[in-house]
Design a protein around this nucleic acid. Sequence first.
DNA 1: GTACCTAAGCTAT
DNA 2: AATAGCTTAGGTA
Length: 356
Amino acid sequence: MAATISKKRTLDSFFTPKSSKKARLIEDIHHEPANTADSITQSENQSQPSSQHSTYPFPIPHLRPQIANELSAIPASSGKEIDNKPDLDLLYFQPYIPRKISTPLFNFLRSSLFFYRVKYKIKRGAIETEINTPRYTTVFGVDSTSLFTADGALIDSITKSPIPSDRYRTCQPRPIPSCLDELRKRTEECTGASYNFCLVNYYASGVDSISYHSDDERFLGPSPSIASLSLGANRDFCMKHKPVPPSTNMPPPSATPFLCKHKDSDKPLKLPLTSGDMVLMRGSTQAKWLHSIPKRKGAGADEGRINITFRRALEKGGTENYYRYNVGSGVVWKWDGAAGEMREWVGVKEVEALGR
DNA sequence: GTACCTAAGCTAT
DNA sequence: AATAGCTTAGGTA
């Protein structure tokens, strides 16, 4: 284990999470790995059971029994099929998470996870602009070419040997922590799909948003199943059909001189998401439809919302993409309950860790 | 109904 | 895939 960590450290020297240094110091003190049986297990030096990994800035607590005991009550209602529009295939649960635990789960996740505000550059013609992603993001998981062992090492899915050192050049994949993995497993049972990624977004207020896009990357395959859970504030989930590409054939002469943007059947739709709801998007939904969480003013626009998505990436390019756009290379943000907002997280000083 | 105001929607960059 | 800037929708007095 210690050898694995050192190797990781060398490979990923480009990133140096502070808790990893701390983990090594703890190993030195205790003469055993800080990460015991798994990445996802209780460690000796804290009272509360938690998931730990060399890539985590700090341990992530397991679900409390109050919450964990209710997981078997998921789904809290049967999903409504929405497939009455062209190329659309949704299953809408109102709610999915039992009302009894949706607020505790929201508060638990907001105060337990680490987040990022990713910056990246795009080129529009000749002009390069910097984008500040207008929400907090974080991600866990690895594509299906690799697996995490119980102790947090990455192995090849087929050979079961340690992955080649050059498989992930731009990121350090992180295992899904127990608290989110419990939700993942339950969601696999509810949807019949399998997931190897968990993306988490935090919309701090109505100012945070995601603009229209599709999760239609090649690495998800042609008809991905994506489960999207909502916790916290109410927000609208807007969907609209992608523009139909111009036909190569000669269009038939139209009786009406006006170009219709939408047939009645594929008009945009707006799903009002409340805490605990889930939308399963499947079939040709990603190939043919766009979705967004638009900015909002007025009632509730000052409250935070968490979105969790489970999905399956089939290629290593998916792993690199997700870590680039949901973790990036910036500072860590963590919920400050007293301040009522996300604050930059500063790691524990090594001397303090040693001094106790 | 009409004037006015703000939120929401649309589109080019 | 985000935003500025413009257009449209909707509420209210």
